[in-house]
Nucleic acid binder design. Structure first.
Length: 278
DNA sequence: ACACTATGCTTAG
DNA sequence: TAAGCCTAGTGTG
């Protein structure tokens, strides 16, 4: 599940559930030094791209979480739940401070304590995040406009843009009719501006709904005479993981190709490779 | 039961 | 370019 919208939503949910409350912090699996946070007060959770940071009172270091490909946080009402599977970090707040709640972290790529300086170093490497109001898309344009790398690859490079994953990149390129293999420097500034503002919009919708929905109203199943059923990614998309299936707009089979070790999906008719640049 | 896949990223070679 | 991380869901037998 984890593209940037997942982490921002998680930051909101964790903050809503735990802010200001005294924690119990454990690592049932034993691979995180959770005891350093035990008994302290949760301050807030914040997301930058696909990274999540948790700050705790009287602990100058921050918890840095990266979910990787299959990590996930699960929030559950109540405490004292049986531990199921490998729980890296379990956070609870008791009825003494509000609703009893438990958060279990499983399968993360990273769950570690970082000093503020280390956090700054990490953040300095991230490109602008469409979900952060202070993000500067111009920084990304500087990189893109000078690069011969395909735009589809640049969109997944977290030092160019942060928070975009395989679903959003496929979907945003479809929505703008852009060939995913187009070299960055052949993209026009207008195209980049449109992509950026659409990412801001799509990812905000993603945070609100906690899933990825990218299909415009006029292409929704009701409008197109096809079954109204969300796919197994939770939302409704144009091309992601729809290889061979008919394009929702023109009916052409969706194409797929492994590019830079990631599956890429696009509609060869709606996103033609023979477009004249500029 | 086992095999395979995945919305990510790092490190080694 | 490939392996590793090591969860969870799906498909196959």
């Amino acid at each position: 599940m984890p593209e940037g919208h997942t982490l921002h939503r998680l930051a909101l949910d964790l903050t809503a559930a735990f802010a200001g409350r005294r924690l119990t912090s454990t690592s049932p699996q034993g691979r995180f030094l959770a005891s350093r946070l035990d008994g302290r007060r949760f301050e807030r959770a914040e997301a930058w791209g696909k990274h999540l940071f948790v700050t705790v009172a009287d602990q100058p270091r921050l918890v840095h979480v990266h979910l990787g490909l299959y990590g996930g946080f699960r929030l559950m009402p109540g405490t004292g739940h049986a531990v199921v599977g490998q729980v890296r970090w379990r956070l609870t707040a008791s009825a003494r401070s509000g609703r009893p709640v438990t958060a279990d972290l499983r399968g993360p790529n990273v769950c570690e304590l970082l000093g503020p300086g280390e956090v700054d170093t990490l953040l300095a490497r991230l490109g602008p995040d469409p979900l952060r109001p202070d993000a500067d898309p111009e920084a990304a344009w500087t990189r893109i406009s000078r690069s011969r790398t395909p735009i589809a690859v640049l969109l997944l490079d977290q030092t160019v843009v942060s928070g975009v994953g395989n679903v959003y990149r496929a979907e945003v390129l479809f929505r703008h009719g852009i060939d995913p293999l187009l070299p960055g420097h052949e993209l026009t500034r207008e195209q980049w501006t449109a992509i950026w503002s659409d990412l801001v919009h799509l990812m905000q919708v993603g945070v609100e709904r906690n899933r990825i929905d990218t299909v415009r109203p006029e292409h929704e199943p009701e409008a197109m005479g096809r079954p109204a059923r969300a796919d197994d990614h939770g939302g409704e998309v144009y091309v992601y993981r729809r290889a061979g299936a008919p394009c929702h707009v023109c009916g052409t089979p969706v194409a797929t190709q492994v590019v830079a070790a990631r599956n890429l999906f696009w509609c060869p008719a709606c996103q033609p490779a023979d477009r004249v640049a500029g």
